[in-house]
Design a protein around this nucleic acid. Sequence first.
DNA 1: CTGCAACTTGCACTCACTGCAAGAATAGAG
DNA 2: CTCTATTCTTGCAGTGAGTGCAAGTTGCAG
Lengths: 201, 201
Amino acid sequence: MSTSAPPPNARERQKRERRLALIEAAQRLVGERGLDDVTVEEISSAAGLSTRTFFNYFDSKDDAVLGIQEIELDAEVRAQFVSGGPSGRLMTDLEALVAGFLTNAAPNIEQGERAMRLMVAEPRLVQRHIAWHQRVIGELEQLLAERRTARPSPVDDDTIGMVAGLLMRSSALAWARSGYEGDAAAHLPEAVAQLRLLLDD
Amino acid sequence: MSTSAPPPNARERQKRERRLALIEAAQRLVGERGLDDVTVEEISSAAGLSTRTFFNYFDSKDDAVLGIQEIELDAEVRAQFVSGGPSGRLMTDLEALVAGFLTNAAPNIEQGERAMRLMVAEPRLVQRHIAWHQRVIGELEQLLAERRTARPSPVDDDTIGMVAGLLMRSSALAWARSGYEGDAAAHLPEAVAQLRLLLDD
DNA sequence: CTGCAACTTGCACTCACTGCAAGAATAGAG
DNA sequence: CTCTATTCTTGCAGTGAGTGCAAGTTGCAG
């Protein structure tokens, strides 16, 4: 299950290694000394790279700590959702889609766990994490537009997007509460149940 | 309704005026030239203040553009919620609470409208806006803890907090879609309805 | 081996944001 | 009105994030 395919050529391999080294250094140093007492320069040289190169890999210090990367949604999951599936009931299908995002979100489970732990100590990271959700939701809203032709819905895109974001975060929190058992996607049903519970008073 | 009580002494009045001047300058300049092509120095001197003073009023450039301020929840609304009211049904009471936050959020309705418009053009502002929601939700979670003694609930604080945040943003978006009719709180029921619609498939 | 493309790096720069200490304005007591 | 304590503003000097550019380096294909 997804450390993704090991890349064949040296270029891609190094790229991956450097990226990992930066995340590892960032998480370790920030864990030891706090977000504001670690500079990008320190992270970079701990990873054996220049500061300038750091910014070729990440847009910000926070992104490196969280190990944020572009999410690539599984083509099959994507196609199924767009064509109005898999179940035809929006909320159910949304759940499947979110699960797809969640499993692709953190290729390295330990890295994700460390990121979650650091978020507890550094609230700023939570905001950055949510900002990243926003990007995912942007992706999702394109899919929604396509799906509408196949299966219209009275619920507007914004609401659907926000609920998706809520489910992502809620799953992550439930995952943390469980002591990081399994992966975040495994706690999605729990998140949905909580939401229903609240809405039904 | 609520430009709040006009303060009596000159100190408080000037403080308010300067704050307003900074927000006005920030919104105008950013509207004209974009968030990244306006410096804090430009905003400050447009408002007739020093750069240093700018940061006595706001934590960041983005905050000034959004006109972000500490929210003060109505003491009565607060007390009622904590003691398990007003209706006793969590979702309903949450709605009342969120309405309370929303009406206190933007003392100046035009300023809020300009902020919403700028968010469309500058996605970074959306993130900052959501980050501000987080702070409000932090406040809310304290109330939730107190309310639990009066009226326990099987739904966890995180979920409730996230739904509150969702309702705030959803109301704001509905307000924008309506062409800024009334205030954001007026569109809360619409937001709740959309959410229920989605959850009930 | 050679030339091409991708990647890294140093450099110079802008600007957000902070702590500090000195100075100006104001409130309030007398 | 005057004096004083308090609050607010400001300049200054500094840190560090993040960017554009141009010059090297490194891996890749033919």
